[in-house]
């Protein structure tokens, strides 16, 4: 299955002086069994695009096909609830959505909304809280008593508890400490690899893209600039340089060696493979 955008466009406040075209003519067919990174400068339409995936925003042009549903511009879709269960969307700074009296109740809130009974909802809440690494002793605390990083993880558990078949995240690691970032990225990676669920992630961190993602979508001024595998994306640095993105250390190493007239022939970006290519080149 895939997520297919055909000529998708979104204009905010159409037909007013404040009208703003956020997305235009997006044609994409995203493999929803992989981890896909969505990158682009601020205002390039990343957040607007992902809000279409669970129909929080509806296209003003074109169509979107996701989880066997077709959302068409100008046609009011019915019962979006089932789609919202299948596509779990984690907003930027999701910790602001916590409101229940206890952490456990808050995580179980989502499943309950989708008709899961109380016991099952709490069971999946416990499972997801353990998945994101919140201690059982914290389950009955108020969400407001948690630290910033814990709040973030609890909020993400609140979406994971819906057991969505596609997990969409808007900069999930912004503002977290390095250990927290790594832990969350591993969690998303496992969610894809072990649970066989699709993951889409907006990020600004090229290291995350390189280490954890399969494909990359580059957005620019509301249009798709490229959609390639991560490897292709980093092996050809033209686009990266054009976008003025910081290169991950391995890519930077290859780039510098090449500039110094030292050809590194590699089709892998694993550090070992790159070093092997350098050794081969030295022996020649």
């Amino acid at each position: 299955m895939s997520i297919a955008c055909k000529g998708l466009g979104h204009t905010y406040s159409p037909n007013t002086p404040m009208s703003f075209v956020a997305l235009k003519d997006i044609n994409l067919s995203i493999d929803d069994t992989k981890i896909t990174a969505i990158i682009g400068a601020t205002g390039s339409g990343k957040s607007t695009l992902i809000q279409h995936l669970n129909a929080l925003l509806l296209p003003t042009e074109g169509t979107l096909e996701i989880c066997g549903r077709v959302i068409e511009a100008g046609v009011k879709p019915k019962s979006l609830k089932s789609l919202r269960k299948q596509v779990g969307l984690v907003f930027q700074f999701p910790e602001y959505q916590l409101f229940e009296e206890t952490v456990l109740d808050d995580v179980a809130f989502g499943p309950k909304n989708f008709g899961v009974n109380k016991d099952d909802a709490e069971a999946s809440a416990r499972y997801c809280l353990q998945l994101v690494g919140i201690q059982p002793s914290d389950y009955n605390k108020s969400p407001l008593e948690l630290s910033g990083g814990q709040k973030r993880r609890a909020a993400i558990a609140g979406i994971l508890a819906l057991d969505p078949s596609i997990l969409v995240l808007d900069e999930p690691t912004a503002g977290l400490d390095p250990a927290g970032v790594k832990r969350l990225m591993k969690l998303f990676y496992n969610y894809n690899r072990q649970h066989k669920k699709g993951v889409l992630m907006v990020t600004h961190d090229m290291e995350q893209v390189l280490n954890f993602c399969d494909d990359v979508v580059v957005l620019d001024h509301g249009q798709v600039l490229s959609y390639t595998s991560v490897k292709e994306f980093f092996l050809d640095t033209t686009l990266l340089n054009q976008l003025a993105l910081p290169l991950p250390p391995v890519v930077d190493l290859i780039e510098r060696l090449r500039k110094a007239g030292f050809a590194v022939k590699t089709d892998s970006l694993e550090l070992d493979a790159v070093l092997e290519a350098v050794r081969r080149e030295l022996k020649r």
Binding site: Y96, Q97, G110, N113
Partner: peptide
Amino acid sequence: ERIRKAQASRGVD
């Protein structure tokens, strides 16, 4: 608006 959307994603209607 932001919170409304976040809660809508959790099934609030």
